[in-house]
Design a binder for these strands. Structure first.
Lengths: 97, 97
DNA sequence: AATATATATCGACTTTTTCCGATATACCAA
DNA sequence: TTGGTATATCGGAAAAAGTCGATATATATT
């Protein structure tokens, strides 16, 4: 995990918001049935009020930082939080920062 | 504490480095005697290899984010870490993020 | 194969950040 | 009060990030 990339990924309002939404998918994305593998891009885009390309880009920034993971199922890509990364981040802040 | 400003402040290599230096001033700034109130800008600037104006600006970004504090003594401004902010940050990541 | 839908990538433009040199301000010493 | 040193602020050029529309790719359906 690269500290810098993680902090950069977190330095954006929309991306922080997305992370929070993904914490409780059933609450924030009631349209979508089943959340085992995450939430699909379209749902997130709709809620974020940004274009599809922007949201797709933001999700890949979060993923490169290790904060979320994805699974492709058919034509959908489902994104979900990687809680391990958040734990690791708090440890990094306590030790390395 | 504004999450976004904190993460932005942490999204820069030099600023992260400065925070780490300030963790062990006696190790990283052996020239300066006494560290109770922190390290002065000149010492940090010299070690960072950036211009005085850049370092001064970076320190004020870190300060606005709440990550460091300063005390003016004569013509020097001494900067030191605000450890409370780092603790608070780990709690924010665990709860709000 | 043709069409439709979901997502990713590309190119462009705008805004923000980085980092500098120059200048201003604050304090100290003679 | 004059000059010296430390820090802060200002203005700007270059690089990076934000954001879009258009296009490409992948998958599903007919």
């Amino acid at each position: 995990m690269n500290h810098l990339d993680v902090f950069k990924a977190l330095s954006n309002k929309a991306r922080l918001q997305i992370l929070q939404w993904l914490k409780d998918p059933e609450v924030h994305f009631p349209d979508q049935p089943g959340f085992e593998s995450g939430v699909c891009v379209g749902q997130i885009q709709q809620k974020a009020g940004l274009t599809q390309s922007t949201v797709s880009e933001y999700l890949s920034i979060l993923q490169r930082a290790g904060l979320i993971e994805s699974t492709r199922v058919g034509q959908w890509t489902y994104y979900r939080r990687n809680e391990k990364a958040f734990l690791e981040l708090t440890q990094i802040i306590q030790k390395d920062l």
